Amino acid sequence: MRICARCHRPIKGHEAYETQDRPSASGQGQTLYRHAVWCPDDPPPTEVAPTHRRRYGRAG
């Protein structure tokens, strides 16, 4: 069974998927599977990191 690395849902037989090999220096590597198009019922991310950060602390 193939599980999507993005949404952690099974990839069904009729769904297209892509693979990515992840080598490991200390042992056997991994093969990651992902849906070829965005995962079902999940919209694409619009923001992956904060655009700015507030600094909290004493003024002065």
Rank of each mutant, 00 (worst) to 15 (best):
44 P>Q: 02
42 D>R: 13
43 P>A: 08
23 P>N: 14
30 Q>L: 14
37 V>C: 07
36 A>S: 06
32 L>A: 11
42 D>L: 11
22 R>G: 03
59 A>F: 04
1 M>C: 13
21 D>Q: 15
4 C>K: 05
4 C>T: 00
10 P>T: 03
35 H>E: 10
13 G>R: 13
2 R>H: 13
27 G>T: 05
27 G>W: 04
11 I>Q: 00
24 S>T: 13
56 Y>H: 08
58 R>Y: 02
25 A>I: 13
16 A>I: 10
51 T>H: 15
17 Y>C: 09
46 T>D: 15
60 G>V: 01
45 P>K: 13
51 T>W: 15
2 R>V: 09
22 R>E: 14
5 A>M: 09
37 V>L: 09
17 Y>N: 05
48 V>T: 15
59 A>Y: 06
58 R>P: 00
12 K>I: 04
59 A>Q: 08
32 L>K: 11
8 H>F: 00
30 Q>R: 15
46 T>F: 13
55 R>E: 08
33 Y>W: 06
15 E>H: 01
47 E>G: 08
58 R>H: 07
4 C>I: 07
27 G>R: 07
45 P>C: 04
33 Y>P: 00
52 H>E: 11
11 I>R: 09
10 P>H: 05
1 M>A: 13
52 H>D: 04
33 Y>R: 04
33 Y>A: 00
25 A>Q: 14
52 H>G: 09
23 P>Q: 15
26 S>P: 11
31 T>D: 11
52 H>T: 06
35 H>D: 10
38 W>C: 10
10 P>W: 07
7 C>K: 02
45 P>W: 04
18 E>V: 00
60 G>R: 03
25 A>W: 10
20 Q>C: 10
57 G>E: 01
26 S>M: 02
10 P>F: 08
34 R>V: 05
54 R>I: 06
1 M>G: 12
32 L>Q: 06
42 D>S: 11
36 A>E: 04
43 P>I: 10
14 H>A: 09
6 R>E: 06
45 P>D: 07
20 Q>P: 07
40 P>K: 06
55 R>V: 12
9 R>Y: 01
27 G>E: 10
6 R>V: 02
40 P>E: 05
20 Q>F: 13
7 C>N: 07
21 D>M: 15
48 V>A: 05
19 T>D: 08
2 R>E: 00
17 Y>S: 02
6 R>A: 05
55 R>M: 11
30 Q>S: 14
36 A>N: 08
37 V>D: 12
53 R>M: 10
3 I>L: 14
28 Q>G: 12
55 R>I: 12
25 A>F: 10
18 E>T: 02
53 R>A: 07
42 D>E: 15
44 P>N: 04
8 H>G: 11
10 P>G: 01
1 M>W: 02
10 P>I: 02
26 S>D: 11
6 R>K: 06
28 Q>Y: 13
38 W>F: 01
4 C>E: 09
44 P>H: 06
14 H>S: 03
29 G>E: 10
43 P>V: 06
23 P>H: 15
18 E>Y: 03
37 V>T: 13
32 L>N: 00
15 E>C: 07
1 M>T: 05
23 P>D: 14
30 Q>T: 14
58 R>C: 00
9 R>L: 04
37 V>M: 10
30 Q>C: 12
34 R>W: 10
57 G>N: 03
